[in-house]
Amino acid sequence: MLLEIAIADAYGAGFEYAPPGPDRPNDASRYVPHTRHSGKHPGDYTDDTQCSIAVAECLLAGATSALGFAAGILGAFRRDPRLGYAVGFRQVLGAATDGADLIARLRPTSDKSGAAMRAGPVGLLGSAGAVLAMAAAQARITHDSPGGTGAAQGAALMVHHRLRGLGPVAELPDYLAAQVPAVDWRRPHRRHAGPKGEEIARAALGVLLDARSLAEVLVLTVARGGDTDTVAAIAMAAAAVSPGFARDLPPALVAGLEDGPYGRSFLAALDRRLAEAFDAPAVAAGPGG
């Protein structure tokens, strides 16, 4: 799952608020450079993946208090600083000394997508009630608003629904609406999305309803435009554990994903740990068909 999230994040990052063109094809064949982030190489993932890694590591370690999540997010950034974070949040991460200091520096009222983008691993928990509670707990340190927290709960529940086989993907809007009524899940978003958390999460839902394969998740997300890396990462977290989606990510995207200390090999190993810890083999199934 995390490996696929990173591929989606890295692919979508090349098109974030930057539409495809003749020299930037949206065909899932390769990563493309971003038009604004000159320091980011094609195939590098962004904060969407790094924060998902942090949440996954907190779940494995049992460090699931607000302080635990804050320390995990800060620790992931400090060991591997990278582009993609909002400027203000990156400055706070750079200044904070520990998890408690990070919490003290934050104004946790955002309604944007930062909590939703990292919520995918929470969907591995065994019950919808546990998913709702944990998704809210990790969200509230930065996004303690109805839209920010509700989007995170929905993103996590998409993973939970698909992984645990709770029904066909077409039933997701009704399932989410019953669990998280603060968000209008019965209106999936199928156009340019961002930056609000609710809109991003509903855009990911729209992609899940319309795609039939992992590669199609990427192409559909980019074709609709906006905050493409975040929409792709959220949708891919659920698609990657869904038996109804063809596992057809091109080998060039798998091989082209960064493979430094926290890159492709690290992510695959972390997926194996998650699969074992949560009795979820699909999490470590890999992106190929």
Rank of each mutant, 00 (worst) to 15 (best):
A100H: 03
L106F: 01
P121Y: 12
V92F: 00
A76Q: 13
L132T: 05
V122Q: 08
H143N: 07
A86E: 07
P121T: 07
R118W: 04
I103L: 15
G43W: 10
C51Q: 15
L132E: 09
G126S: 14
A63I: 08
A10I: 05
A136E: 12
R107D: 02
A76I: 02
G12N: 05
P20I: 00
G147I: 06
S113E: 12
L132F: 04
P20A: 14
G68K: 06
A135T: 05
F69V: 03
S113D: 09
S52F: 12
G68M: 03
C58Y: 13
G72I: 05
Q50H: 06
F77L: 03
S127T: 15
A119M: 01
G84W: 04
A56Q: 14
A96S: 01
R24N: 04
V131I: 13
S127Y: 13
L106V: 10
L102Y: 01
D23P: 02
F89Y: 10
F77S: 00
T64L: 10
Y31M: 05
A66M: 14
P33F: 09
A128S: 15
L106T: 02
Q50P: 09
S113H: 04
D27V: 04
A28R: 11
G21Y: 02
Y31G: 11
T109W: 12
L74P: 04
A119V: 10
A128W: 11
G14S: 01
V131Q: 10
P42I: 14
D47L: 12
G147N: 08
A70R: 07
D98S: 02
T97M: 03
A139M: 06
R79Q: 11
T35D: 14
L59P: 01
A6T: 06
I53R: 10
A71F: 06
G68A: 07
S113Q: 09
T46Q: 09
D144N: 14
D98W: 01
F15Q: 02
P19W: 03
F15H: 05
L124Y: 09
L59W: 11
Q138F: 03
L74T: 07
F15N: 05
D27E: 02
D23K: 05
L125Y: 11
M134F: 12
L83V: 07
H34D: 14
A100L: 07
P108C: 01
A139R: 01
P33I: 07
D44W: 14
G62K: 12
D98Y: 00
H41W: 13
S145T: 01
A136P: 08
P108G: 00
A56V: 12
D27M: 06
R24M: 05
G88T: 04
G62I: 13
G72D: 07
Y11K: 06
S65E: 09
A70P: 08
